[in-house]
């Protein structure tokens, strides 16, 4: 067979250069496409999160319609607003499994404690691993712009004597009516969001609640001091990692699971200052802000850059402040 005949039958393939060029073009196209897809996906997640808050806001209004007041921020045995809202979120079967005379961690409430409610989960929070027997939550009710966790004490000598009472719509045994909100329901936050923690005090995560105790200089007298401490705190110091069970279980009415404060700016480090002073706040995985459901049932996206006075005004139900943003 002559050399020319062989050449005539051979199939011409791609050269290495051609292949590399094609691969490079595909890589560039993928590089352009992936961020765009991620952006669209996050926009969809943010909308889904906003819808969850809308559902919970409507459930609050339905609860108010049937009971004549909003649910209490937490019951005497620390059961959450979320537990009280279940019948208004089409979760009656879980609601029936809750014994409201028993604490969140009692054996009687084990089934409800582990029941996943999709409406309580923000799709942008991709931390989905939860300790066994618990179910997660990203949404919290607003206790106000103060830092007192309980009610004002009456016993002389209590370190929290003289601290102002919670001024938000949800606190211990609260039963606020919409007409009690003299700031107006459209100027008062009902719910916002927070990322779940890492459930391990041996790991530093900014989404955890930092435990500061009565260490010198780290016991705030008011919300301004709480903001200063939160801003200067070293989040990597494991000595401050005291509450990593953040965002679960939803049945627990607690400052790191179902309640937040408007004392410090959104995305500040959430802190607890025992005895009795707390400044957990709102944060999210959404770019640049958090979703907030107002007491009128609407949902707004509040930017991270919101001014502290406006954020605090949004937290109080009857503070008389004017919100200009």
């Amino acid at each position: 067979m002559s050399r020319n005949m062989v050449r005539g039958y051979s199939r011409r393939g791609f050269t290495l250069i051609e292949l590399l060029v094609v691969i490079a073009i595909i890589a560039i196209l993928v590089g352009l496409l992936v961020p765009a897809v991620q952006k669209v996906r996050e926009a969809a997640n943010r909308m889904s999160c906003s819808n969850n808050l809308k559902q919970m806001g409507l459930a609050l209004h339905n609860f108010h319609g049937s009971q004549g007041c909003l649910p209490s921020g937490r019951t005497a045995v620390s059961l959450s607003v979320h537990a009280q809202l279940l019948p208004h979120l089409e979760q009656d079967n879980i609601f029936k499994q809750i014994d409201f005379t028993q604490a969140w961690n009692s054996a009687a409430n084990a089934n409800a404690r582990a029941a996943v409610v999709k409406t309580f989960l923000c799709p942008s929070d991709n931390f989905n691993a939860i300790p066994a027997g618990w179910a997660g939550n990203n949404y919290r009710v607003n206790q106000g712009s103060g830092i007192l966790w309980g009610l004002p004490p009456s016993a002389a000598g209590d370190p929290n004597m003289g601290m102002p009472a919670p001024n938000g719509p949800f606190f211990l045994n609260s039963k606020m009516r919409l007409t009690d909100m003299t700031d107006g329901t459209s100027n008062t936050a009902a719910l916002s969001e927070h990322r779940k923690g890492d459930f391990n005090n041996g790991i530093s995560s900014v989404s955890d609640t930092f435990y500061l105790g009565q260490v010198k200089g780290l016991y705030p007298a008011n919300a301004d001091e709480a903001q200063t401490i939160a801003d200067s705190l070293d989040a990597n110091n494991l000595l401050y990692q005291g509450m990593s069970d953040v965002g679960a279980p939803w049945i627990y009415g607690y400052h790191s699971t179902t309640v937040y404060f408007h004392a410090t700016r959104p995305f500040s480090k959430s802190c607890m200052y025992p005895p009795g002073r707390i400044a957990t706040t709102a944060d999210s995985n959404h770019s640049g802000g958090v979703n907030v459901a107002l007491c009128d049932g609407s949902v707004r996206f509040v930017p991270q850059s919101v001014s502290l006075p406006a954020w605090r005004a949004l937290g109080s139900a009857s503070g008389g402040e004017v919100i200009n943003e």
Binding site: R41, V116, N126, N128, A129, I130, A135, G136
Partner: peptide, 9 residues
């Protein structure tokens, strides 16, 4: 796709 749901730690 992000539809993994809740898993146990």
């Amino acid at each position: 796709a992000g539809c993994g749901g809740q898993s146990v730690m």
